[in-house]
Design a protein around this nucleic acid. Structure first.
Length: 294
DNA sequence: AACCAGGAGGAAT
DNA sequence: ATTCCTCATGGT
């Protein structure tokens, strides 16, 4: 067990991170204490970290405490990647300050990309969320994880591929998965378990190579592969054109009579490269209803 | 009460 | 190579 204090370059608004995480019922968020539990797999060791924000958006400080055994160095490295503590948002805001997205970046000042905690979990969640409204999507992943996953010190781990590969489609359909979604998740698990798909190995390759590989898996299309690159790996330049949320956000931003065509999206997005992932993130935020407006 | 959801695969053209 | 249909179910 260990503890560590991490100071990073601002701006970075952890309240907004917690607000977003709390939309997922599986996240252990405490607004009063400004904390969240982060379940990590370090080697073969389940390591749960307690992360508490101190300081301010301008000068962020975090207190990190391990609630389980687990090596400090590798745990902190992974945590920094997940919360993008290494990525100065000031530079990103500067890049967007002369674009159409400037007002959106101003409104959501200090919003970082936050990764999913695990590669397989990211893909499984994404498959389950395909074509569902977010509230029902969260209900489904909640059932899935609380039924087949593991709780350690209050933090939920998604079931490992070993566990889900052994499930039958009927078992998942009982949780109200569609038959296909059940097959997709089980099939993906089997690919990983067999060694045919190595997500850790893939993680070092180029966006294009990863895309090409993932799209071959049944149940993973372009949108899901892009989501993995963005929220699994934290790649900076993804713009999921097939995403309904992005389309609706652009429609609202430019007051279009209907959702933009792929060509229009291509045109708008040119000025935002090579940080399209941030453009996507802030566009998503721009159409989310906040619990309270200030 | 239709219609749409942070899609994808498979069949029919 | 493109459309078109289906999938489960909750929200609006």
């Amino acid at each position: 067990m260990w503890t560590e204090t991490v100071s990073i370059q601002g701006p970075y608004n952890f309240d907004l991170v917690l607000e977003r995480l709390s939309m997922d019922p599986l996240q252990a968020v405490n607004f009063q204490e400004k904390t969240v539990l982060v379940p990590l797999m370090i080697g073969n060791q389940r390591t749960v970290l307690h992360v508490q924000a101190a300081g301010s958006t301008a000068e962020p400080v975090f207190h990190v405490t391990a609630l389980t055994e687990g090596e400090k160095g590798p745990s902190l490295d992974k945590l920094k990647k997940i919360f993008h503590w290494h990525m100065p948002l000031a530079d990103i805001s500067e890049h967007f300050s002369r674009t159409d997205l400037q007002p959106v970046f101003e409104e959501h000042h200090g919003t970082p990309i936050v990764l999913d905690f695990d590669y397989f979990s990211c893909l499984a969640k994404c498959i389950i969320h395909q074509q569902l409204n977010l509230s029902f999507a969260h209900t489904l992943t909640e059932r899935f994880v609380k039924t087949y996953g593991t709780n350690v010190k209050g933090a939920w781990y998604y079931p490992a591929p070993e566990r889900t590969a052994a499930l039958t489609a009927e078992e998942l359909k009982a949780l109200q998965f569609s038959g296909r979604k059940a097959e997709y998740v089980i099939g993906l698990s089997k690919e990983i378990l067999s060694g045919n798909l190595d997500l850790e190995g893939l993680s070092h390759k180029s966006d294009q190579e990863i895309m090409d590989r993932l799209v071959k898996i049944r149940g993973i299309g372009r949108w899901t592969a892009e989501n993995f690159l963005l929220f699994g790996l934290g790649r900076p330049n993804l713009f999921p054109k097939a995403d309904i949320g992005i389309q609706n956000a652009l429609k609202q931003l430019y007051r279009l009579p209907q959702k933009p065509t792929e060509e229009e999206m291509e045109t708008y997005s040119k000025a935002w490269s090579p940080f399209l992932s941030y453009a996507s993130l802030y566009l998503w935020r721009s159409i989310e209803k906040r619990s309270e407006k200030k």
